[in-house]
Design a protein around this nucleic acid. Structure first.
Length: 931
RNA sequence: GGGCCUGUAGCUCAGUCUGGUUAGAGCGCACGCCUGAUAAGCGUGAGGUCGGUGGUUCAACUCCACCCAGGCCCA
C-alpha cells in the first residue's frame, strides 16, 4: 500500500503529456463549428488579400448542373479541386477558387414543365423561364451548402452562374465573335420530331415502346456497274430492308460495310447483292438462291442503283455503322431521316432531303405522295413497290420504337434547319489540334481522347428547340424569312442582355430588340419588319463560354486557366466545347493543364446507378464519419484510376485518420510546456536521435511537397500515414518517451526532444492541411506556439537542406537495422514470458561489418533509447563469436535485466536503492528529484 | 460493335517506361506485450500462380498478341 502511494507520487514528478486536443474527433459535430469559424473570420478573403501579388494559380471550376443533390462523384471532384487549390496556396501561390453552376438546359426545363403539368397548368414562356430560373437558384443554394460542408473553400458568396445577366451577355458576345469570324451557318440536320405535337424532342423526352410496322425487303436495280461486280447479269439489283416505308421517297443512297463480305446471289428474281452473312436468312425468300461470288464491301464502291420508285440514281457508299443483325447488310439511306444516314449524306455531299412537314404531311413537291400523311402512306408505298416489281417480301413486325413522352405517338427523324458552328472554317479543327499539343494532359494518355474527339467531331449544332436557355440572337425578315446576319446587331443584343437579362429576348416587344432603321440585308431598306428566333443555344455553349465570362471577366482570375479538372466524360463535353470556342475566338486553348480524374464506382468496380441501388450520397459519409474522412479517402485513391467506394475502404481510412490524429495529439501533449522562442535548442546542439528525426522529417516534407506538386494525393496519403505510423509512432516517439517523461522539464535533454517535436508538429500540420483542413485547423488552434488565426493562411515550410546530415542518416540506418534485430529477439523473450515490457531487458550487440561495429560503438549511449531497453553493451565481435548472427548482420544477446526496476523511470538499474531518501529509485531519478 | 483507359496481397498504394537474386509498404487480420499517448501505444506472424492464355527471351509482374472483367464516350 505504501509502495503504491509512493509510485503515485513519483508519477506526479513526471512530465506526462497533457492537451485539450481530444482523442476522439467527433468530426460530424465538430466540423460545422469549424466551418462557421472560417466564415466568421472570412479566412478565404483574408488569404486572397495575403497572397495579392503572388504568382497566380487558377484552377477553373467546371460548373456542375444545378438540379439535384450532389453525388459522390461531384463531391470527390470538389474535394480534389480543393486539395489542389489549398496545396498550391500553401506553396505560396495566389490560388483563388471561384465555383460555378450550369443553370440553363433541358433537365431543369423538363422538371419544371412536369411540375406545371401535374398542376394542370400550361405556363407561358415567360412564366416557364421564371420558374426555371427560380428552380436553378434553389438548387445552387442547396449544392453550395453541400459543397461547403466538404471543407472546400472559395468564393462561395460570389460564384459564377451561367444564368446571371453578365454571364448570359458574354455568351451572346462569344456568339457575336463567331458570327464576325464567319463560323456560324444554318443548315439541315435530322432531329427527333413528334408530328402530333409538332415539336422537336430531345433524347430524354423519348420513350421506347412497341410499335407495329411493315417490314419490307426491296430490290433496287443496277444503274451503273463500272467494275463489273455483277458481270453484266440481267436483271440485277441490290436488296435493301426497312421498317419505315414512308422514308423510301427520301432514299438517296445505299450503304455497305467496307469490311463485311457481300454476295452476288443468283435467284429467280435475278442476280441480287446482299451481305453474305445474311444469306441464310434471306435465301428462303426465293425459290432458289445460289451464291455465285463474294467480295468485300470495299470493292462495291462505284455501283449506282436506281431509286425504287423514281427515276433517280442512288449510289452505293461504305460506312461503319452497317451490321448483320437484321435486314440485308445493305442500308437504305435517307439523309433527311436518320442520324447515320445524315452523317453519310454529309460525308458524300448528298442532298439532305426531307419532304415531311412539321405536321407529318408530305410537302407539295413530293413525287406521288404530296399532301398525304406519312403514317397513311406506309401501305400505299408498299403497294406501289409491289406493283413496280420491287417488293421481294413484306411482313409485319412488332419492334421497340421511339415514342413521344407527351402524346405517346411514334416519333420520326426529320431534317430541319439548325444553327451550326463550322469546324473546318478558318482551319478551326487543325488549330484546335495544334492547341491540344500545347496543353499538358494528366494523365498523359488522355491526350488521345481529346485528340480523337476533336479529329472526329462534326460541325457543332448550336440550336436547341427548347425554352430554358440563351435565345439565339437572330431575327428573321418577315418578308423573305432570311435571318439577319449582322455582328453589330448581335452585339447590340449582348448589351440588352447585360442590362435586362436573357429573358428579355423572349418577352420584349420586337421593337425593343431590333434597333430602329434596321432593315433586311436581302430585301432592302424598306424591309424593316422582323420576327425573333425562338430557339436557344446548346448549353455546352453556355459552359464553354466560361473562359470569357469568368476567366477573363473576374479580377481574381486570369485567362488562360492553369488547370481544368473534370471527369473523363468532359473530353466530349466541357474540355471540348471550351477548346473550340477559345480557339475560334482567342486562337489558343483556355487551359495550360487538363487533369482528368477517374469515375466513382462501387466496390465491385461498377458504375453507380440508381437502378442498381449502389449509389452512395456523400452526406452518408460526412454524417457518419465526417468530411475529413471523406477527404482522406479521396486522397488515398489514385485519381487517374476509377475510385472504388466501399465502407471497408472508409473504415481503413478512418483507422489511418485515428493514427494521424493521435500522432498530433501526442505531439501537442508533449509540447504543452514548450515555447519555441525561449526553449528551442539549436540544431547543432540537438541530441543525435532528435537531429536524426528532424532530418527524417525534412526528407518526408520534400517528398510530400513534390507529391502535391504532381497532384499525387494518394502519395501524400501513403507518405503521411507511413511517417506517422512507422517513423514517428513506432520509432521516434516511442523511443524518446522515457527522456520526455523523466528528465527535468526545462533540461537540455528534454528541450532537445521537444525542439524536434515542435519542428515535426509545425511541419506536419502544414503538410496535412490541404487534405485534412478541419483536423489541422483544430491542431493549429490547440497549439500555443501558433499565433496566426489558421493553418490555412500559412505556407509549407520551405526546404531546409541544412537539416539533413548524410553521415548521421547513414549511422541511424545501421542503428535502426540493429534495432530490428533486437526487437525480434525481444519477442522471443516475451513468448517465453521472461519479460513483458522491453525495458525489462538488457542487450549485448555487435556488428559483423567493422564499419557498422564502429557506428554502434560511436553511438553506444543512444542505443538504450533507440532499442527502448534498460541497458545496451556494444561488445567486440570476438566476444560475441559464440552467438549466431541474425540475418541483419548483427549478433544480439537479449536477456532479462538482473537489476531492480526504478519506481520512477521504470528502467532496470544497478544503482536502484542507493539513496535512503528514495529507496525505490535509480541514481539518475534521485538526482533529478533532488535538483 | 468501335475508340480511349484501368486491372499487383482482404483494403489503399509502390515496383512495370530502362526484363534479371525469395514482388515491397501501411492498414486490416492472427497471436502476444504494455497499462505513464490508454475507446491509445509496441512487437511478431500469416496473406499475392502480379486479371487470363499464348508468344518473344537464357530470364517477364515488367515486352508483344489475343482473351476476360470493369470504366468513360460513341454506335
Amino acid at each position: 500500500m505504501a509502495k503504491e502511494t509512493q509510485q503515485k507520487d513519483y508519477k506526479e514528478t513526471l512530465n506526462l503529456p497533457r492537451t485539450p486536443f481530444p482523442m476522439r474527433a467527433k468530426l460530424p459535430a465538430r466540423e460545422p463549428e469549424i466551418l462557421a469559424g472560417w466564415k466568421e473570420k472570412r479566412l478565404y478573403e483574408r488569404l486572397r488579400a495575403d497572397r495579392q501579388g503572388r504568382t497566380r494559380y487558377v484552377l477553373h471550376d467546371g460548373p456542375p448542373y444545378a438540379n439535384n443533390h450532389i453525388h459522390l462523384g461531384t463531391a470527390v471532384d470538389k474535394i480534389q479541386k480543393d486539395m489542389i487549390v489549398r496545396s498550391r496556396s500553401m506553396m505560396g501561390f495566389d490560388a483563388p477558387y471561384v465555383p460555378g453552376w450550369d443553370c440553363h438546359g433541358m433537365p431543369i426545363e423538363i422538371y419544371v414543365q412536369r411540375e406545371f403539368r401535374e398542376r394542370g397548368e400550361e405556363p407561358g414562356l415567360a412564366e416557364l423561364r421564371r420558374r426555371c430560373r427560380e428552380f436553378a437558384g434553389e438548387w445552387v443554394a442547396i449544392q453550395r451548402g453541400e459543397f461547403e460542408r466538404l471543407g472546400g473553400w472559395g468564393a462561395w458568396d460570389d460564384p459564377y452562374l451561367t444564368m446571371s445577366k453578365d454571364y448570359e451577355a458574354d455568351i451572346v458576345e462569344t456568339f457575336a465573335d463567331l458570327v464576325e469570324k464567319g463560323f456560324i451557318y444554318r443548315g439541315l440536320r435530322p432531329i427527333h420530331w413528334c408530328v402530333s405535337c409538332q415539336t422537336a424532342l430531345a433524347e430524354a423526352e423519348i420513350e421506347y415502346d412497341d410499335k407495329d410496322s411493315p417490314s419490307i425487303t426491296v430490290v433496287m436495280g443496277v444503274l451503273e456497274d463500272p467494275n463489273q461486280v455483277f458481270a453484266g447479269a440481267e436483271p440485277a439489283g441490290v436488296l435493301i430492308w426497312t421498317t419505315t416505308p414512308w422514308t423510301i421517297p427520301a432514299n438517296r443512297a445505299v450503304v455497305v460495310h467496307p469490311e463485311l463480305e457481300y454476295a452476288i446471289v443468283e435467284t429467280d428474281r435475278g442476280h441480287l447483292l446482299y451481305a453474305h452473312g445474311r444469306h441464310e436468312a434471306l435465301a428462303g425468300l426465293f425459290e432458289h438462291a445460289e451464291v455465285v461470288r463474294t467480295l468485300p464491301g470495299s470493292e462495291l464502291e462505284g455501283l449506282v442503283f436506281s431509286h425504287p420508285l423514281e427515276e433517280r440514281p442512288s449510289p452505293l457508299f461504305v460506312a461503319d455503322h452497317v451490321t448483320l443483325e437484321e435486314g440485308t447488310g445493305v442500308v437504305h439511306t435517307a439523309p433527311g431521316h436518320g442520324a447515320e444516314d445524315f452523317a453519310v449524306g454529309r460525308e458524300y455531299d448528298l442532298e439532305i432531303y426531307n419532304p415531311v412537314q412539321r405536321d407529318g404531311v408530305f410537302v407539295d413537291t413530293t413525287p406521288r405522295y404530296a399532301g398525304r400523311h406519312i403514317w397513311e402512306t406506309n401501305e400505299q408505298i408498299v403497294d406501289d413497290l409491289d406493283r413496280a416489281g420491287r417488293l421481294i417480301a413484306r411482313e409485319d413486325v412488332t419492334h421497340s420504337y421511339p415514342h413521344c413522352w407527351r402524346c405517346q405517338n411514334p416519333v420520326i427523324f426529320r431534317a430541319t434547319v439548325q444553327w451550326f458552328l463550322a469546324i473546318e472554317h478558318d482551319q478551326l479543327r487543325q488549330r484546335a489540334l495544334g492547341a491540344i499539343d500545347d496543353v499538358e494532359w494528366i494523365p498523359s494518355s488522355t491526350i488521345n481522347r481529346i485528340r480523337t474527339m476533336v479529329e472526329q467531331r462534326p460541325d457543332w449544332c448550336l440550336s436547341r428547340q427548347r425554352a430554358w436557355g440563351i435565345g439565339i440572337p437572330a431575327v428573321y425578315c418577315e418578308a423573305c424569312d432570311e435571318p439577319l446576319f449582322d455582328v453589330a446587331f448581335v452585339r447590340h443584343v449582348a448589351e440588352l442582355v447585360r442590362r435586362e437579362g436573357a429573358d428579355f429576348w423572349f418577352v420584349a416587344p420586337i421593337e425593343a430588340i431590333v434597333p430602329e432603321g434596321t432593315s433586311c440585308q436581302h430585301c432592302g431598306p424598306d424591309a424593316t419588319s422582323f420576327r425573333r428566333e425562338v430557339e436557344i443555344l446548346d448549353v455546352w455553349f453556355d459552359s464553354g463560354s466560361s473562359q470569357r465570362a469568368v476567366l477573363e471577366r473576374r479580377e481574381d482570375l486570369a485567362w488562360p486557366a492553369d488547370m481544368y479538372k473534370e471527369g473523363p466524360d468532359q473530353h466530349r463535353g466541357w474540355f471540348n466545347s471550351s477548346l473550340m470556342l477559345a480557339v475560334a475566338t482567342r486562337d489558343a486553348a483556355p487551359y495550360r493543364t487538363v487533369l482528368t480524374h477517374g469515375w466513382m464506382v462501387d466496390a465491385q468496380g461498377r458504375a453507380m446507378h440508381k437502378s442498381r441501388g449502389n449509389v452512395i450520397a456523400p452526406d452518408q459519409i460526412t454524417e457518419k464519419r465526417g468530411a475529413d474522412i471523406l477527404r482522406l479517402w479521396t486522397a488515398a485513391n489514385d485519381f487517374t484510376r476509377d475510385g472504388r467506394f466501399s465502407w471497408e475502404a472508409i473504415d481503413q481510412v478512418s483507422e489511418a485518420y485515428r493514427r494521424i490524429r493521435n500522432t498530433f495529439r501526442f505531439l501537442l501533449g508533449n509540447l504543452a510546456d514548450f515555447d519555441p522562442e525561449k526553449d528551442a535548442v539549436p540544431l547543432a546542439e540537438l541530441l543525435d536521435f532528435d537531429r536524426w528525426a528532424i532530418g527524417d522529417l525534412e526528407r518526408l516534407a520534400t517528398e510530400v511537397r513534390e507529391a502535391y506538386e504532381r497532384f499525387e494525393f494518394h502519395a501524400v496519403y501513403q507518405l503521411l500515414v507511413n511517417y506517422c505510423t512507422v517513423n514517428l509512432s513506432a520509432i521516434y516517439l516511442d523511443g524518446i518517451k522515457v527522456r520526455l517523461y523523466i528528465q527535468p522539464a526545462g533540461g537540455t535533454e528534454r528541450r532537445s526532444a521537444q525542439t524536434a517535436l515542435h519542428t515535426i508538429l509545425d511541419t506536419l500540420v502544414r503538410l496535412a492541411a490541404p487534405v485534412l483542413p478541419f483536423t489541422t485547423d483544430e491542431v493549429w488552434t490547440t497549439s500555443d506556439a501558433n499565433q496566426s488565426d489558421s493553418v490555412h493562411l500559412e505556407e509549407f515550410r520551405p526546404a531546409q537542406p541544412e537539416r539533413i546530415d548524410a553521415a548521421l542518416e547513414a549511422d541511424w540506418r545501421t542503428i535502426l537495422r540493429a534495432r530490428q534485430a533486437v526487437t525480434r529477439e525481444l519477442e522471443g523473450l516475451r513468448e517465453g514470458k521472461v519479460i513483458g515490457s522491453s525495458l525489462g531487458a538488457q542487450v549485448e550487440v555487435s556488428a559483423e561489418d567493422p564499419a557498422e561495429q564502429g557506428i554502434l560503438e560511436h553511438h553506444a549511449t543512444a542505443l538504450e533509447e533507440a532499442f527502448i531497453v534498460s541497458a545496451v553493451q556494444v561488445r567486440p565481435p570476438e566476444v560475441m563469436s559464440g552467438v549466431e548472427p541474425v540475418e541483419e548482420g548483427f549478433r544480439v544477446v537479449v536477456e532479462p535485466s538482473p537489476d531492480e526496476k526504478c519506481d520512477r523511470c521504470w528502467r532496470y538499474r544497478e544503482d536502484v536503492g542507493h539513496s535512503p531518501e528514495h529507496p525505490g529509485l535509480c541514481a539518475e531519478c534521485t538526482a533529478i528529484l533532488s535538483s
